[in-house]
Design a protein around this nucleic acid. Structure first.
Lengths: 150, 150
DNA sequence: GCGATTTAATTAGCATAGCTAACTATATTC
DNA sequence: GAATATAGTTAGCTATGCTAATTAAATCGC
């Protein structure tokens, strides 16, 4: 017990920070999500589409993994996106795989939605002081590194 | 147009910060969500339960509003929580209203789940340097204020 | 080179979670 | 006390998650 004490002692403070960060992330996204309804697309479809738009075409399995969803689930999400003309399934050299590509319409809709979310948040940031904005900027850069370690 | 130019010019930098923060929040929660499956409770039930556990008992309408969901949706979420013994519907003076209360079992399960999420994140924070951890701590305190302004 | 295995995606069937519309029951108002 | 307002539920639709089973294509082994 006493031998690992140093390591254990470090945790409570981190737990508190983690708890606050976790809670803030939940509330942040809950607020921004409201604006997604304007797109008329469900959250899973929107999220999958964003991977294709920002990350480029990929197979169904890859997209499922990126979205942390099982292939059958992604298959149906893609079917919905295809039905509304936001994504296209294309054949590949490997006859088992499909290449999923966002259409022009899908790309446009996604950018508009993202713009709404980001603008809502940017407006909230606008009322902060210069020092606080700088702090937020620093954190926004630091977060991806933290996420990678989870 | 030109009259509001000053305000518009301030936005691009904020848009970039907002975009990064938004994206980081999405990826953060996506990672942490994985651990929720261990609880065996769906995300909507888990989130509603957390409001009752951390915020105390309230009516169905209040809970629906807190969760940004319509009353019929919340009614069914609560039915699920009641069926598994995590929440109780109690009568109030006003015969139309119900008081929703988390049971001991519900409280216990929620704390365990929250612990898992927060610990995952705290572990990721543990590998940061002292200066970075301090920065994260500052931001975690600042975020609720930003969220309130969205 | 052809049968067996592996891999990618889909289909089928189930549960949860979101919505609107319609209904029930209780309070409130005039 | 009748009309109206409010709180919650029920019914029925769509979307999103899962596992199990199926289909089709590629690869492996001999």
């Amino acid at each position: 017990m006493t031998l690992v004490k140093r390591k254990r002692e470090a945790i409570p403070e981190l737990l508190e920070t983690a708890d606050k960060l976790h809670s803030a992330a939940i509330h942040l996204l809950r607020r921004l999500r409201v604006r997604d309804r304007e797109s008329g697309i469900g959250p899973a479809q929107l999220s999958a589409l964003s991977v294709l738009v920002f990350g480029g075409p990929r197979s169904l399995g890859e997209l499922a993994e990126a979205e942390q969803v099982r292939p059958p689930t992604m298959s149906r999400i893609v079917s919905g996106l295809e039905r509304t003309g936001l994504v296209k399934r294309e054949a590949t050299e490997d006859g088992r795989r499909v290449r999923l590509v966002a259409t022009a319409k899908g790309t446009k809709i996604l950018w508009e939605g993202r713009k709404r979310r980001v603008e809502s948040l940017a407006n909230a940031l606008a009322s902060l002081g210069e020092a606080e904005r700088a702090r937020v900027r620093e954190l926004a850069e630091l977060l991806p590194e933290i996420v990678r370690k989870i």
